[in-house]
Nucleic acid binder design. Structure first.
Length: 420
RNA sequence: GUGGGUGUAGCUCAGUUGGCAGAGCGCUGGAUUGUGGUUCCAGUGGUCGAGGGUUCGAGCCCCUCCACCCACCCCA
């Protein structure tokens, strides 16, 4: 049997309805915040990500789907979208647009990791970028926007974790201080941490091993090493979040794996997700445009929601999905009835009703199907009804049945279905 | 890339000491030729993940491989 490749999956009904719901809510909230959609290609020149995300990151060194085009060019399936958006921003001179450039995107990303709960090789992100300002006011609005989308989708009980990772002026001093401190204590840490102390000291701070925590507590905090500008920026972001009554926890040990982050970084976690508990993450990336070759600076901040994880959390916390119901199940008994009723079905569908036209001539079977589809009404059209010019409209809830003229049908059904 | 767990019907899972491959749900038909749900009856369903070995005999024991899941690393 041919199966979907490792780390990819089919999203089937009824789950696909939840995906649509999430995307509809996200678009609604984006519109309210005056964000507009950008659609970038699913693959780019490899350079976009190698430079944008960072040559030494895990994503670039071991997780990208990179292939050679027939003309020899190196192309890569996008592992994230921020680099692509900035590439488009530069390419189309969006810096010439008035005010902040506020863009959102949604779609699949690709990383070749070992799959597990909440992690797939093709996964979906809903994200946005606000480009053109260094103001902490933008940081606060972007964080609020992230939370608003999660709320609108129906997620509750998530936690916002906040940190500042400094800038090129202050972060190197912190890193070397951390390295020094680890020299003395690394022998008291777990084997993973002893390795990380060499390869990526920042990662030690993120260790989840219980026994290591007392030692990790004693390590220097990035927040003590922020330069004056970064310190003020961070305080302002916190202030603005408090103004909006958005609760957050400062996590000086929140470390992010993409090189482009500067200053504000944040993560939103949820308890229903397993080990991969981040449902969204984001941060500021003031130097990214220059890294990608822009002559004009384009400071920005963005976020990305893991749609797979959001849907997962919704499915785990909410009661069973609501099956989309059929408004009217039409059961023509025989060829003549079928031919007469087909144009009627189209008319009703054009007017917004959800109509199922059964190719089934047996009434018992048709009603059985109507029931299984959760139909509100069934319409029975047999020889008797054809002769009378009035069809039998059956209320599937009560079992009551009454004759209705075809032209009255729409009003009769519409009056008792939720939408339309 | 590393570790652990699990593989039996479309789904969820039983399967005793190695002795005929099972249940529930689903699906199909019937009881009811034009009336669903509830009920009753019947039917449909299988490379027991794959290959090899031991044995008179393997879903069960042994070996190899594969897939999926969970976790590590890292991230959404």
């Amino acid at each position: 049997m041919i199966r979907s490749v490792k780390g990819t999956r089919d999203i089937l009904p009824p789950s696909s309805a939840i995906w649509n719901h999430v995307e509809e809510q996200a678009r609604r909230v984006f519109r309210a915040y005056n964000y507009q959609e950008i659609r970038t290609p699913i693959f780019e020149e490899t350079l976009v990500f190698a430079r944008g995300v960072g040559e030494d990151t895990d994503i670039v060194t071991k997780e990208m789907y990179t292939f050679q085009d027939r003309d020899g060019a190196s192309l890569t399936l996008r592992p994230e979208c921020t680099a692509s958006v900035i590439r488009a921003y530069i390419e189309h001179r969006l810096d010439q647009q008035p005010g902040l450039v506020k863009l959102y995107y949604m779609g699949p990303m690709f990383r070749r990791e070992r799959p597990q709960k909440g992690r797939y090789r093709q996964f979906y992100q809903i994200g946005a970028e606000a480009i053109g300002s260094e103001s902490p006011a933008v940081d606060a609005e972007v964080i609020e926007l992230t939370a608003e989308i999660l709320c609108a989708a129906g997620l509750a009980n998530f936690e916002l974790l906040l940190n500042s990772v400094g800038c090129p002026a202050c972060r190197p001093q912190f890193t070397s201080a951390l390295r020094d401190a680890l020299q003395d204590v690394s022998k008291r840490l777990c084997s993973d941490c002893r390795r990380r102390a060499q390869t990526n000291p920042l990662r030690v701070l993120d260790c989840k091993v219980e026994a290591d925590q007392p030692v990790i507590e004693t390590l220097p905090s990035i927040l003590d090493y922020l330069c004056e500008a970064c310190r003020i920026h961070f305080l302002k972001v916190q202030e603005y979040l408090r103004d909006r009554a958005i609760p957050f926890q400062i996590r000086p040990r929140l470390v992010r794996g993409l090189d482009y982050y500067r200053r504000t970084t944040f993560e939103i976690v949820h308890g229903a997700l397993g080990a991969q508990n981040a449902v969204a993450g984001g941060g500021r990336y003031d130097g990214l445009a220059e890294t990608l070759g822009s002559k004009v600076p384009a400071p920005g901040i963005g976020f990305s929601i893991g749609e797979d994880r959001l849907v997962l959390a919704l499915e785990e916390t909410q009661s069973g999905g609501h099956a989309p119901a059929v408004d009217l199940f039409i059961a023509p008994l025989g060829e003549a009835a079928f031919r007469q009723v087909a144009p009627l079905a189209r008319t009703l569908r054009r007017r917004g009703l959800v109509v199922e036209l059964a190719p089934e001539a047996r009434l018992k079977r048709a009603l059985e199907l109507a029931h299984k589809f959760g139909a509100r009404y069934a319409l029975i059209v047999g020889d008797e009804e054809l002769a009378a010019g009035r069809y039998a409209l059956r209320d599937m809830g009560s079992g009551q049945q009454r004759p209705v003229a075809p032209e009255e049908l729409y009003e009769s059904v519409k009056a008792n279905v939720p939408h339309a």
